[in-house]
Design a protein around this nucleic acid. Structure first.
Lengths: 153, 153
DNA sequence: ATAACTGCAAATCATTTGCAGATCT
DNA sequence: AGATCTGCAAATGATTTGCAGTTAT
């Protein structure tokens, strides 16, 4: 429900963006946006393409690539390069700021937020006399115990 | 001079590593190591290949790729993926810990070190019950003034 | 001697591009 | 209508792979 409401908000945001930029409101753009916002994970282009086909929505990867770039420019999604040469995307509204921990053994991705990254950012801005627009912070590690899986005693 | 001394140390480290792993001490491996340690910047495979050819050292890119992976495993170099799909490498000894600021307008890369990243790391380890082996932190931004270039008044 | 390594060229994989035809406005 | 999009297939660019010949041990 709140997800339906959220979708409405980002649809509006996309409409405004497209109008502002004088770009066309094609159905592909809204379908990609919807698919991205119906998903809580990080998604790659192949998966997105596959899911859309499953739903009988015919779209080419070229169009997906083009429009993901556009959605990034619109601020509606974010792009990540976790290691291995393939990009992952996630929605950026209704998620809050967060960074990622990549568990290298299980390929699992966890999220966290630590406000101190902002203070580091501010310090660096002052020291280097730059304006920082964004950052990417990834921690790579492994789980200590298997608590969530099979451990009991 | 100190650079010559440093090279000796990492050569020894590589020898030890290769012995330990039962891998062969080929000249290519030591030449790549030397080239990496004679360089203060972040280097990509093409540049490395080109520089070695300039010095009349014939080597294939496949060998460079293979051996960079090996040097990473040996802990002698680090790999970075700054945005655009191509990997960059830098030596890891005699440089100190640091993270990077990428100036998106000039493609310049600056380095910094802020100890607070360690405290964030420790917090995350506790909260998520994980052991973090490494991290990558990139800030993306632009220079505020052109002080180092043409500004006077 | 022989297992590991190198170079080459072909293969792969993600992403981009060119262009003809389709579609928003 | 007319410029912007889309889809397709071909191009690209970084990295990998298969394999025959080379080399360290």
């Amino acid at each position: 429900m709140s997800s339906a409401r959220n979708l409405k908000i980002v649809k509006k945001a996309l409409e405004d963006y497209l109008e502002l930029k004088g770009q066309r409101k094609t159905s592909e753009r809204f379908v990609i946006l919807k698919e991205m916002y119906n998903c809580d994970e990080h998604m790659d282009v192949d998966t997105l393409h596959f899911r859309m086909r499953l739903k009988n929505y015919k779209i080419s990867k070229a169009t997906i690539y083009n429009n993901l770039d556009m959605l990034i420019d619109a601020g509606l999604i974010r792009k990540h390069q976790f290691g291995r040469g393939k990009a992952y995307y996630e929605r950026s509204f209704f998620r809050g700021n967060h960074d990622h921990v990549i568990l290298t053994d299980t390929e699992e991705i966890k999220e966290f937020y630590d406000a101190r990254i902002e203070t580091i950012k501010e310090t660096i801005e002052q020291i280097l006399d730059v304006t920082i627009e964004s950052h990417s912070l990834y921690f790579y590690g492994t789980r200590n115990t298997c608590d969530s899986e099979q451990k009991i005693a």
